[in-house]
Structures are given as C-alpha cells and as structure tokens.
C-alpha cells in the first residue's frame, strides 16, 4: 500500500440492491468511478478534489455486500454524506448504501466486521427450520474469530 500522507479514515459500508441482478456489474473500478460521479453531483468540483486525494475502494465483498472505502480524515464527512444520496449504481439498479462503521485503520474495521457478521448469523438463528440447519449455524458462529481472514469469516455469512 502506498503512503498518501495524512491520516486516513475507513468507511465500512453495506450495499443492498432491490434485485439480486444488481450485483452482476459491481466491481471495484466501476464502483470507484460511480462514487466519484456521485460526489461530483452532490458537492461539485470542490468535493471531488477534496475526496479524490486518497480515495480508494479497499475491499469489496459481493457475497455479503460489504464495501470498505478509504478517504482523508479531513474530508470523510463529505464522502459519507454523498453515500446517503446514492440510489442507483450501474444501469438503473436501485440500491442503498449504509455506513456501518467508521474506523481509523483497516484492522479496527476488520474487527468490527467479524463481530457484525457474527451478529447477522445470530439474527438468522430464530428463522431456522430444521435442527441440522440450526447446529450448522451455531457452528459457524463459534468459528468466527479474529485469527481468521475477513474473507472466510464473511463468506460463511452467505451460506
């Protein structure tokens, strides 16, 4: 990772689409471009200039809909307010982006994400239909630890 100077902030976001087809066209580069376009719409040239300094899409998980954005600490509120205004991505796919955590390092975001994904598993527990499903889910909750990679922990969520 190249150093950009200054302190960064990391925004951990959750994207939800109206239809599952929305995920087909989502990739890091396209997302990067469409978020910059949204900033241009909401805050103009000044906003783009402020955010673009160290703006990057650091992580994208299309299974769980998790997105990690990096931005300068001084201007992350500009970026954050833009995210709330995004209602479409790609070709007219309705979506909503909600920020679930703001962290100073990737590590704190990772810690939060593991806790968050474990919570999502627990929330699914009352909806289980069979006993086997239930034990599988409980096993998955127990296996969520910090030592594991974020990717593997969050992929369990989608199962």
């Amino acid at each position: 990772m190249q150093s950009t100077g200054g302190h960064p902030k990391y925004l951990l976001c959750e994207i939800s689409f109206a239809s599952p087809n929305g995920w087909q066209h989502v990739e890091e580069k396209k997302l990067h471009r469409s978020i910059l376009e949204a900033i241009q719409k909401a805050h103009g040239d000044f906003g783009v200039a402020c955010c673009a300094v160290s703006f990057a899409v650091k992580y994208l998980n299309t299974y769980t809909g998790i997105l990690l954005l990096r931005c300068r600490k001084a201007h992350y509120r500009l970026l954050w307010s833009t995210l709330a205004f995004i209602h479409q991505l790609g070709k007219k796919e309705t979506c909503a982006i909600t920020c679930i955590h703001v962290g100073g390092t990737i590590r704190t975001c990772q810690k939060f994400l593991i806790g968050y994904n474990r919570q999502q598993l627990l929330r699914k527990l009352p909806t289980c239909k069979s006993e086997a499903e239930r034990t599988a889910l409980q096993e998955a909750v127990r296996s969520c630890t910090l030592q594991e990679d974020v990717v593997s922990a969050s992929e369990e969520d989608s199962n």
């Binding site: 709330a84 979506c95 909600t98 920020c99 679930i100």
Partner: peptide, 18 residues
C-alpha cells in the same frame, strides 16, 4: 415508501450537517 429509500441512523445524523 420502499425499503431501499431508508438509510442508517448514523448516515442521517451525518446528513444533518448538510
């Protein structure tokens, strides 16, 4: 009116600044 028009409470608190 639709589910995707909702935003998270912290997002809205940030939107309040605007």
């Amino acid at each position: 009116e639709k589910p995707l028009e909702l935003r998270g409470p912290y997002d809205i608190a940030n939107l309040g600044l605007l």
